[in-house]
Write a protein that binds this DNA or RNA. Structure first.
Lengths: 341, 341
DNA sequence: CTGAAAGCGCTAACAG
DNA sequence: CTGTTAGCGCTTTCAG
């Protein structure tokens, strides 16, 4: 059982003051090279490790960034996190990651915990359930950088990183219309979150351009859960005017739909054309391959990291813009292609 | 800009000592209910928040658990993490998560950082590259709980959580043999890690039981990357005796194989039967659906969390066992089914 | 270039 | 039940 060694131990050992040790360790300019190397050597030998608690307490900062996401285990989110981690790690920051599991209460709790843990900044992707935003006041009040990504809300001085969801929704729908669809169902969830709401608005806009929007073709699910599938198919089957297009705002769920529709005897894309959202790995695995909207998760993570770091450094540049809009991209695959006949 | 309020501020405000405030806030039994509620109220009003740095410094613990994983963005890992987070969060612990990206150097760096950050315990899934384990000495020397999951190494007093990879490899291979395969190729990577090595041993064992193991049918890849696919297919095609079975230790890569083989004109399962590993979502999406080994990621995360917490609490029970072996399960789907003809 | 000493905010042993 | 006080280990101002 090694016992911890402090700067006092080193100081005693070397016959210098703790201050000198501290400065040496931090490579302070006003310390002679000789003393510095002496200290470094002793630190090495004794296995000295800095105590961050003491350091943080003294410096009033933690070199830690908090992250709250709805859930960790989604391809998109874990990809975003991977990007954030890369940037943070390179800059010497730690990441405390927690998940809200779409619950407002858990989000509040996590926000509080992360505040108390003294994170230097907070990155948030909001829970679907969340309807109030006061819990972030602790951060904004003390001017601790706060950034929202993907699932965002507009709060003064809080940058957001999103894609143009309205446009993406429009593009997806327009594509189906271009392929000849006329009775397109929109399957989505939680219009409470602007990301989904905007996609819906885009869908509606595209539909309205050909004066076709029908309220009954909007299907809002509580969850993108495979258990919902039966009712979805039932709804499609029951439509008085046959559904000929499906815009599903989640690839995984779109894949469930494809499988269920095929099983129910529909031909895809002949009878129904389908487009998803996110460009998840599954979209390339399903047969027919799923058209979708490419959603640059890794890039979003990297930008979120860079943006928050630049705020922490006080540097003003492109990354510290109030809103970063990432380009999405329409990816056309078999599931939505017009069949030539 | 709210300014921070400390227990001294509260003490002054209420005309009591800081100690009383501290005790009240921590719900210490020897404080009168009256004082307690007085303090709580004042804390509420002033927006007091505990300073964890000071608290941690004093208590010499952080209520934080460090986690190092090879990569965040894999379905399996993010599922494990989700389980860990759930347990940690419920117990009031924060999670500092970092990724090694399969690099030994990064793993070392992260280990050091997490140590200095004063995590109370460390959970690790090893990088493929890692060949030395001295960097964990800082933890073992000071008796800081250290646990390995999935990609493990045996270090005294460090619990491990794994599945029986040897048995799983055996089961997968045996299944293919039972379906009539005789010339089975094993595609895997990084035999450096025991998880993969054990699966290989299981494969070999099953093959040897029918005296069929051939060294040339072992294909070890550096990465499960889609770029490797062409050479894999080439190798299969070039085999003097036709390959009739494929045991791939990763579902995603198995899916790449299926797609490429189908494209190359092979019929699955008629010409080649395939089994993967992990039961990733993609395995149910591909056509034909992929047989695989169910790998209980969420459960592994939950157990890892519980195990480490019980170590931290000093409680001795089942969860503090040195090795936890989770049950895997053979899942048989279309890709490996014997065709009746 | 180096040292002394105060302070970061909280906890806990000891005393009352 | 409450107060006094001495740390926890590091940083940093101010003196030298």
């Amino acid at each position: 059982m090694e016992k911890k060694v402090t700067i006092y131990d080193l100081a005693k050992r070397l016959g210098v003051s703790p201050a000198t040790v501290s400065r040496s360790l931090n490579d302070h300019p006003s310390i002679s090279l000789k003393t510095k190397s002496k200290v470094m050597l002793a630190a090495e030998e004794t296995g000295y490790r800095i105590n961050k608690f003491a350091s943080n307490l003294s410096l009033q900062k933690s070199n830690t960034i908090g992250v709250i996401v709805p859930k960790l285990n989604s391809d998109f989110m874990s990809t975003v996190l991977s990007g954030i981690e890369k940037i943070a790690n390179e800059a010497g920051y730690n990441l405390i990651i927690s998940q809200s599991l779409e619950s407002e209460e858990k989000e509040k709790f996590n926000t509080k915990t992360l505040f108390e843990s003294g994170v230097d900044a907070l990155l948030v992707s909001l829970a679907n359930e969340t309807k109030t935003y006061d819990h972030f006041n602790t951060f904004t009040n003390r001017k601790i950088p706060l950034l929202f990504f993907d699932r965002v809300i507009n709060i003064p001085d809080c940058p957001t990183i999103i894609i143009d969801n309205l446009r993406a929704g429009y593009d997806a729908t327009k594509h189906l219309l271009d392929q000849g669809c006329r009775n397109i169902m929109h399957i989505t969830h939680g219009l409470n979150r602007s990301a989904y709401h905007q996609r819906y608005v885009g869908y509606k806009k595209a539909m309205d351009e050909v004066t076709l929007f029908k309220k009954e073709n909007l299907l809002v699910l509580d969850q993108f859960n495979s258990r919902e599938i039966d009712s979805v198919i039932a709804k499609i089957t029951a439509s008085p005017e046959p559904i000929d297009g499906l815009f599903v705002t989640n690839d995984t769920f779109a894949v469930y739909c494809i499988k269920a529709l095929l099983k129910a005897g529909y031909r895809i894309p002949d009878d129904i054309k389908i487009i998803g959202f996110n460009n998840d790995p599954v979209s390339e695995v399903i047969n027919p391959e799923l058209s979708t909207i490419e959603y640059p998760g890794y890039r979003m993570g990297v930008l979120a990291g860079q943006s928050i770091l630049s705020h922490l450094n006080g540097s003003i540049n492109i990354e510290s813009a109030d809103q970063i809009l990432l380009k999405h991209q329409l990816i056309i695959r078999q599931s939505s292609r017009k069949t030539t006949n």
